[in-house]
């Protein structure tokens, strides 16, 4: 997981591949949790960028575990942050959706009343099980 958590800008976390060691799942999720927790305590909005294919389990099983784990975490931050006003959301897109993902990240980071949501960009997985 990479992302800048300094300054006053929104924090954007981008999931990276876990590798072959299952221990990487614990590391990736724990690292993301700490970054999101620290960001919301600093009053900064968070956007987690996920690969749509990982949410659907279309790739590596460990990457899929981290992706859906992050989404569950985003939703819990949304629930816990309803009163204090935390804004934590996720954006998911396919490999060809990079520009649309970036535009959506900027939009959702600035949205004052959206939290705990997954915004899916592109239509690759329409008609499939919701993430």
């Amino acid at each position: 997981m990479s992302g800048d958590v300094s300054g006053g800008e929104p924090v954007v976390l981008r999931m990276s591949a876990v590798g072959d060691d299952p221990a990487g799942v614990t590391t990736a999720l724990t690292d993301a949790f700490a970054r999101i927790r620290d960001a919301v305590e600093a009053g900064r909005p968070v956007v987690v960028v996920l690969a749509a294919g990982n949410l659907m389990g279309q790739g590596d099983p460990l990457d899929a575990a981290v992706a859906t784990g992050l989404l569950g975490m985003v939703r819990t931050f949304g629930i816990e942050g309803a009163k204090p006003g935390w804004r934590v959301n996720a954006v998911a897109g396919g490999e060809d959706d990079e520009a649309a993902v970036e535009a959506t990240v900027a939009t959702i980071a600035a949205a004052a009343h959206v939290t705990g949501q997954l915004i899916s960009v592109g239509g690759a997985n329409l008609g499939k099980v919701p993430a």
Binding site: R37, L55, D60, A64, V66, T68, G69, G72, T76
Partner: peptide
């Protein structure tokens, strides 16, 4: 796994099982 107050860890773990199983 869909989100639960006070359970960022538990929620992430149980949602992670869903993705792992799908893949």
């Amino acid at each position: 796994s869909l989100g639960n107050f006070g359970q960022a860890n538990y929620s992430a773990s149980k949602a992670g099982l869903v993705g792992f199983g799908r893949a």
